[in-house]
Each structure stands twice: as structure tokens, then as C-alpha cells.
Computed example of a mutant assay.
Amino acid sequence: MRSSRSSDAPMLAKQRQARILTEIRRHGGARVTDLTTLLGVSDMTIRRDLEELTASGSVHKVHGGAVLNAAASSEPGFEAKSGLEQPAKSAIADAAARLIRPGSAIAVSAGTTTWALAQHVAGIAGLTIVTNSTAVAEQIGGADPRSDATLILTGGVRTPSAALVGPVADQALGMLHVDQLFLGVHGMDAAAGFTTPNLAEAQTNRALIAMADQVIVCADSTKWGSVGLASFAPLSAADVLITDQDLPADAVALLRDTVGALELVPVDRAEVDDPGAARTS
């Protein structure tokens, strides 16, 4: 069994805040009185949670409750995200590439961590690679010209994060089957699971998961506790989750009980720890 957590166990603060954020996103807002009833905690606890969510920019406090911060549901572009947490993304990509078997069929989702992985796959013999990411496709297509990889791009509507989504992408994925899916995520959370700020991308991610024998989630530790607009899979959907060593201890314990296998990779942050270096995280 992947999870032994009791449904009667008290929620951790992060879990409770994720549930609150889900309610606010579902209804556009929530009252403190309703949240205390829903979660079985005091109004002071709810008010503290709302203060933390407000400080993070997720919600805006109003008299008696909170509403969704419009900026929290916006989707950052690929260029904006690609410069963040580069050492961790590189380490995660290296670990993910070691799981790929020559001659297999894989899918690589949109995302900056999976884009880092794409730099490795052209050197693996005989791959068939399905992707819904224009950035991943460009990376693979511009790699080693001696590569014998077969690249399949789904088509679809392009999002700010360079993902191809919508009915065209979903229909294409529904006709295919792969051995492994390497999946990037916007956020991962105990209560909300894996999330994205884009509703159409959530559905396309579900189609990607459905086509794969093995789901390998590639996400740096800063994604923990982040909740996007749309949940598309529970944490238990990950057969393997590759993240970095900075993941909080409580998250490590929860994920070891939830995902199929958890791999924590070491990260060399020496270059970003240099005060004179440009920060990338």
C-alpha cells in the first residue's frame, strides 16, 4: 500500500491551507465561519491560515473571510520560469535520464525541468519521444544531428508555458501508449496533489498520465506546498517522484508513504551561493 495515513489524523498547517485555497478557488471566496465548520478548527486558526495565504500572494483578505488574488491564478511564461532553481532542475534531469531505457517509447511533458531532461534524451539510442511542449521539441530537434530519436509533437493550443493543450492534444495522446512519462508540475501539495494554473493543461496532463505505464514526476523542492488553479492527479499517481534534497522533512515522510518511490538528489549550489554570482533560484 502506498499510503498508511489515517483520514482521522489532524491536518498539518500546509494541508489545511491548501484545502482553504481550494475552497476559495472553487467558489471565488470563503468566509471564516464556513471554513471553521469545514475544517473543524478555531476561527483564530483559520485567520492565521488566511494571513499566511495573504502573505504568499494567494488570497486577499476581506472582512469576514478572503477572496482569490487575481494574480495568483496567472500563469508565468516559460522564459520567466526557466531561470529559477537551475541547479536543482539540472540534478533532477540527470537522475531522470538514468531511468530511460534505450529503444523505449517515452513522453516528456511541458515544463522547465522536463526541458532540462530533453537535453539528455537525444543521446539515448532508439527512443520514440512524445511531447506536448514546443520548447522540449525544439531542444530535442536541435540536439545531436546523429540522433536516431523519433519525435512526435501532439499539436494543440500553446500556453504561456510552451505547452500544447486542448482537444487536439488530448485526442492525439489518447491514441498513443508509452513506457514512461516524465511529468513536470507547477505545484505539489498534500491535499491538492499535483496542480497547474491552466485548466486546459490539467486535462492534457491527465491524458499524458493515462497513456503511460510508468509516471515519473520531476519537480524541484520549491514546488512543495504550491497550489495551482487546477488539480490533475493525486500524489499517489507518481510511480517515481524525483526532487532535490531541500525538500522539508515532513514532506519527505508524507511522500515516502504516498508515491511509489521517492528519489532525493543532491544539488551543488556553490555557484549561486557566491555573492558575486547572478542568482538563478
Score class of each variant (00 low, 15 high):
271 E>D: 14
11 M>Q: 09
37 T>I: 10
52 E>A: 12
188 M>F: 15
105 A>R: 05
90 S>L: 07
173 L>E: 04
84 L>E: 13
181 L>H: 02
192 A>D: 09
192 A>N: 09
161 S>D: 14
88 A>D: 00
136 V>S: 04
113 T>C: 12
131 T>D: 13
147 S>R: 10
173 L>V: 04
124 I>Q: 08
237 A>R: 05
120 H>S: 00
55 A>S: 10
267 V>M: 09
143 A>W: 13
273 D>K: 12
73 S>P: 02
28 G>W: 08
67 V>I: 15
241 L>M: 13
134 T>G: 01
149 A>C: 14
186 H>F: 15
126 G>S: 15
216 I>E: 05
35 L>I: 10
1 M>H: 14
79 E>H: 12
277 A>V: 05
11 M>N: 06
30 A>E: 07
257 D>R: 08
19 R>C: 06
122 A>V: 01
34 D>H: 13
53 L>K: 06
73 S>D: 13
122 A>C: 04
68 L>S: 11
184 G>F: 12
1 M>V: 11
49 D>S: 01
207 A>Q: 09
237 A>N: 10
100 I>M: 03
109 S>H: 00
80 A>Y: 09
77 G>Q: 06
37 T>N: 11
75 E>C: 03
84 L>I: 12
87 P>W: 06
143 A>H: 11
54 T>H: 10
275 P>R: 07
19 R>T: 07
244 D>Y: 02
183 L>D: 02
56 S>C: 05
237 A>H: 04
273 D>I: 02
142 G>Q: 13
36 T>L: 06
249 A>G: 03
224 W>F: 11
52 E>T: 12
273 D>W: 09
131 T>P: 13
90 S>D: 13
187 G>A: 09
86 Q>Y: 02
53 L>E: 07
207 A>G: 03
140 I>A: 00
128 T>D: 06
123 G>I: 02
62 V>I: 15
212 A>H: 01
78 F>E: 12
93 A>V: 06
197 P>K: 04
139 Q>I: 12
11 M>V: 00
107 A>G: 14
256 R>K: 11
178 V>M: 04
225 G>N: 14
162 A>I: 04
18 A>R: 03
67 V>K: 11
93 A>M: 04
104 S>E: 10
266 P>T: 10
32 V>P: 05
242 I>M: 05
93 A>G: 01
168 V>N: 02
216 I>R: 00
125 A>E: 12
102 P>L: 08
33 T>A: 15
168 V>S: 12
148 D>H: 05
32 V>H: 08
120 H>T: 01
92 I>R: 01
93 A>S: 04
90 S>E: 13
226 S>E: 11
35 L>C: 10
250 D>K: 07
130 V>R: 00
24 I>Q: 08
174 G>C: 00
177 H>C: 10
243 T>V: 08
142 G>I: 04
163 A>P: 10
263 E>D: 15
228 G>M: 09
114 T>A: 04
200 A>N: 01
21 L>C: 10
136 V>Y: 05
194 F>V: 03
80 A>F: 10
43 D>W: 01
180 Q>M: 11
271 E>Q: 14
147 S>N: 03
27 H>C: 14
139 Q>K: 15
138 E>W: 07
22 T>R: 12
